[in-house]
């Protein structure tokens, strides 16, 4: 399958197969005016299968949420149909205000003003935990 090259924009490459639509949702790409292509199950020498997202516009990407959903993603910035910048995502130390603690016993369930903050506790297994009650965040924790 061929999806045309973009002249100016962003290509999110090496997305773990199956995570593309999740990223599309959490990055709110559906709300953009520009065209967005989500390619799922593309062949990859390195990964076997991967997802790719092409965005025909230079938007601000929330790298924290991107790192949480899939830290293996490569961000390619395209200008004049050429890759001018290629960035690997690093896992953020803290994620503030993007994830919601699901523990019904957590103080965040009653203190409405309190920011939901998650801290990276295990880099190898990409585990984030609520700083208040230590509950583990997962993809369902994304607000």
């Amino acid at each position: 399958m061929i999806v045309g090259q973009i002249k100016e924009g962003i290509v999110l490459d090496h997305i773990k197969a199956g995570r593309g639509m999740k990223l599309y949702d959490v990055l709110k790409l559906g709300e953009l005016d520009c065209s967005v292509a989500v390619i799922v199950n593309a062949e990859s020498e390195k990964m076997g299968k991967k997802d790719i997202i092409k965005i025909s516009g230079l938007i601000d990407i929330d790298f924290n949420i991107l790192g949480f959903v899939d830290p293996g993603v490569t961000v390619n910035i395209i200008k004049d149909s050429k890759v001018v910048k290629r960035e690997k995502i690093a896992l953020p130390e803290k994620i503030t205000g993007l994830l919601k603690c699901k523990n019904p016993r957590c103080i965040t369930t009653v203190e409405q003003e309190l920011q939901h903050v998650f801290k990276l506790c295990d880099e190898d297994n990409k585990v984030y935990r609520c700083i208040y009650c230590e509950t583990k965040a997962d993809l369902e924790s994304i607000e």
């Binding site: 016993r105 009653v110 609520c130 208040y132």
Partner: peptide, 25 residues
């Protein structure tokens, strides 16, 4: 009874806070 409440208190208190038990935490 809510987990993390004493930690929240310690962030704003100007005196030492001792957690005397927070939920099941």
């Amino acid at each position: 009874p809510k987990e993390g409440a004493p930690y929240v208190a310690s962030l704003k208190a100007t005196v030492p806070v001792i957690n005397a038990g927070d939920g099941g935490h």
